[in-house]
Amino acid sequence: MTATLSEQSAEEVGRFPEPVVRFDGVSKRFAPDVTALDDVTFSVRPGEVVVLLGLSGSGKSTLLRHVDGLRRPTSGTVSVLDTDVGNAGGRTLRGLRTRIGFIFQQFDLVGSLTLLENVCTGALGRLRGPRLGLLSYPRDVRLEALRQLERVGLADQAFQRADTLSGGQQQRGAVARALLQRPEILLADEPVASLDPESSAQVMALIREISAEDGLTVLCSLHQVDLALSWGDRMVGLRGGRVVLDTAASGLGRDEVMAVYSQVGATADAVLAAAV
């Protein structure tokens, strides 16, 4: 299956020769007998929109967390934006992280703070010292935060406490926070798994639109197969920590993708549950 690169993907390979994310034989074990990633090798070129597919526990989240050094590989190398992530530490790692936006399943805004202050925390990486309170951020950071909130359509909610907003609004706020980092790469870990279908569609469209505008490279894990097929450029399937599918999305059939789930030997019910 990995051999069936479509023409479109081949064109992109030609246009962007240097990968921005490169996994080379990466394995991650949490305990001697728990393998989260198993000899993963793949690379992502600038501007690509990659969807990670797989059952819960297949290693999608762990893989994403290796990209910005929230996890370190047990063996193999992770190279992102010309930085060896596994061996980077301190200032180098923080510098790398500011160039990578991360969107989480549970939004992870601080509920008791206003939306605007939450967005401002995206600038912490380039500011020095601790910040407490909205007014502790420089005015230009606050203005930029407000601009990002305008882009995600939430400027009028800037001074609401984050925990008074709906799930979809909170996730759009989290997108604005990531954008304030002025990232080159955007990681999203199941960004719509906690949202209703309507908000899901909104958030996914927003991420796609903004990443195109800003020319971002995107890695997004999803478990909704139909959504993934219509959304990404490239599908990477994980099963038991191994890459079992890596192909362009166009022309890819639903059945081929479902194979990622069925090969695991799951029951029909589990496959259906994963597909819903």
């Binding site: 929230l70 923080r94 510098g95 992280r97 500011t98 989480f104 939004f107 995206g122 990531a178």
Partner: peptide, 11 residues
């Protein structure tokens, strides 16, 4: 969550 989100932003 919020803490790792802030960490992921390079804090």
């Amino acid at each position: 969550g919020p803490r790792s989100a802030v960490r992921a932003g390079g804090a």
